[in-house]
Design a protein around this nucleic acid. Sequence first.
DNA 1: TTGATATATTTAAAAACTTCAATGTATTTA
DNA 2: TAAATACATTGAAGTTTTTAAATATATCAA
Lengths: 97, 97
Amino acid sequence: MATKTQDLKAIEKISKALGDRNRLNILQHITKKGGCAQCSEIHDIIDLAQPSISHHVKILTEAGLIEPEKEGRNFKYTLNTSVLNDYLKFLEKLKND
Amino acid sequence: MATKTQDLKAIEKISKALGDRNRLNILQHITKKGGCAQCSEIHDIIDLAQPSISHHVKILTEAGLIEPEKEGRNFKYTLNTSVLNDYLKFLEKLKND
DNA sequence: TTGATATATTTAAAAACTTCAATGTATTTA
DNA sequence: TAAATACATTGAAGTTTTTAAATATATCAA
């Protein structure tokens, strides 16, 4: 079963989102927190200006890897396990072809 | 068990290597060929000039995803399953933290 | 409503990436 | 040895990405 062009685009986007040290740190922080965290916490941990963090979070969100949920003044970000699983499946398939 | 900085660098490099449509196509071609292929075949399948393909293959090689093996005048590229597995393990861990 | 906090957007500059033409190197074949 | 084939490297143009300052918006608290 060949991979659709559309799927490949998603894979490309997810890979790109994962291809940055800061975004990997953000992801790790979110998952360590039990799958969710706030932007302000991230700011404490990563040495970047606030707009940069906002930008990285946006890229992770647009790739579908995390999902934002508004909680009053803050945001809660949750790892999207099903998107990650689809990505893993694609990579697994490379081994079995 | 926290991810070492060194490991994170490797993860970043692999993700970056995977973050390009052409490189994904090259990888898929190699794996479909039973885990190995020659540069010249890739040239037939992907619409890029030879130096571009050489460049992409180099990036995949430097990330450790494929391994080159000289075969006379040609090259044979093989998927490095163990590097891919380490990458998969890292991503799996994100889910279980 | 005013001030404070959390996050997003715009803009602009620097850095990194992609691509290809030109050229170089290694190997095979005639 | 000369020509042909396979791949690498260099250099340069165009594109994308990263970052932060400035600014905007939304919500909470007083």
